[in-house]
Design a binder for these strands. Sequence first.
DNA 1: GCCGAACCGTACGTTACGGTACGGCAAGTC
DNA 2: GACTTGCCGTACCGTAACGTACGGTTCGGC
Lengths: 216, 216
Amino acid sequence: MGILVLKPAAAETLPILGDLTVRQAEVLDAALRLLVSMGDKLTMTAVARSARCSKETLYKWFGDRDGLLTATVQWQAAKVGMPRIDRAGLTRDSLRAGIEAFGESLLRVLASETSVALNRIAITHAGTDRYGLGAIVLENGRREMGRRLKPVLEAGRSAGYLNFKDSEAAFRTFFGLVVRDVQVRRLLGDDFAPSEAEIVSEAKLATAQFMTLFGT
Amino acid sequence: MGILVLKPAAAETLPILGDLTVRQAEVLDAALRLLVSMGDKLTMTAVARSARCSKETLYKWFGDRDGLLTATVQWQAAKVGMPRIDRAGLTRDSLRAGIEAFGESLLRVLASETSVALNRIAITHAGTDRYGLGAIVLENGRREMGRRLKPVLEAGRSAGYLNFKDSEAAFRTFFGLVVRDVQVRRLLGDDFAPSEAEIVSEAKLATAQFMTLFGT
DNA sequence: GCCGAACCGTACGTTACGGTACGGCAAGTC
DNA sequence: GACTTGCCGTACCGTAACGTACGGTTCGGC
């Protein structure tokens, strides 16, 4: 539906969102910047001006405002990279280091201005839009993180370093220990933001706590 | 500002928000119901119709749309009750039970439809409104919870049952252990919601984990 | 160098909603 | 019983943003 069935006649395409031209990607990047700075007050005219394209083109490509928003969110969500942890040659230390690095990355992303803006827009539209921005953010954010870390946790369990019943529950506990109230406070506009040093030390602490709870 | 300096000439007032008429409270209740069902798409006309009052009255009482929204959020936020834990005759068991009850209540509130709607609207408006809905929700929600639980944690430490440096950090960890990804997922429209039994058992687990990390 | 398609820039129609103005009514006061 | 007060109901205005239409322009293909 909508954006996913785009069939651009042009040449160069990007292997994402079901074929986007580079021009379309540029437009989405512009939209993303505006989304971060203007939030939901983003207007079609502003996007057109910022991306130096016509509104007619926007409507032709993305259908309507929701379509553009959806494409933009998907575009960014797909770009976010969570580290893939190496499972070969697992030791207690490498496991711990891997989990810690993952926690750092998680916290860094969730505290970022872009993530906050994206989640804001998704939350705003949650419940009352047909494209399901919330579902997209959930799928590419929280769910994807789970998919990345759980195999590692299970490998750690197989190696006898970790002890838990349900890897989903273990992941959710790790998520809670790392993120705590940071995301909600940022979403609500609390103007605190963890420094890079704090991100590192908080991820370290959370990992230590996680190992205390689930380590053998 | 705005709503807080209301000087209604009428007789019966409520000891909140700087004196509200019961009629005004009725209007706010109606607005709250509409806020839950319509979210940010709530319209002044709809509120007026639902509360069976005129738009003119709405504007006279609350100034403008943001004023009404702010008053509604404050109205509800002030109604939410977190348990005040008894600090007298503290034992290991009573401490644990108190923390656990607090966790239950916290989770129950944050997972509720009303809380989700309120936080959605506050997040939507965060950063770009002059009344600071986000700040209000933060102050009456997350902050107030901290103010309630921290004295208890400190009492537990004084009694030698708990061990931590910073009570704020300890509270944030407890928050993370209890809430985990529940609030964000609900905000994003994930249609899972913990049952009452799950709320109880999750709070119990989180408390146990918290005691493992900070208990003596 | 010509053709057609895609695209730009912009002006315009439409709609929805915030906010205001005004007539009427019911209740309390003198 | 006239006056005041507070509120309802509704019609109305202004603005802002969505979505469309159209003439002019670029650009790839031959």
